[in-house]
Design a protein around this nucleic acid. Structure first.
Length: 106
DNA sequence: GCAGTGACTAGTA
DNA sequence: ATACTAGCCACTG
């Protein structure tokens, strides 16, 4: 089995995001001691197994939008939005959320 | 080993 | 508001 690098640090930080809050890929990279490596955070989320308890859906991009996987249907995107809305996060008419309002500030 | 890819981002136009 | 760029670097074939 592959190691996929050591993403445990990233997963640990993601699991500490409070309910109803979000974090950006770049923010998580900084917190994990990997400044400028937001793409690695994205990869860490991509390889998460479905049965994982890591709240991947609380991770959004720097514009407050939900980032799309390659070739994804709109369903996974809607699922993420639905999970966030179930925690009280509200999206505007442009399918964006307010980082000023919801971004986690550790 | 090398080139292409990408749940990213800050900058520029 | 959109579009393109450079920088980023683990992973893949």
């Amino acid at each position: 089995m592959k190691n996929y690098g050591n993403y445990d640090i990233i997963y640990t930080i993601v699991m500490s995001i409070p309910v109803g809050k979000v974090a950006t890929y770049g923010q998580l990279a900084d917190l994990a001691g990997l400044p400028g490596r937001a793409r690695q955070v994205g990869y860490a989320m991509r390889v998460l197994p479905d049965e994982s308890t890591v709240p991947w859906y609380r991770v959004v991009n720097s514009k407050g939008e939900i980032s799309r996987r390659q070739g994804s249907s709109s369903e996974s995107e809607l699922e993420q939005r639905r999970l966030l809305e179930s925690e009280g996060v509200r999206f505007n008419e442009q399918n964006k959320l307010s980082l000023r309002e919801y971004q986690w500030k550790p």
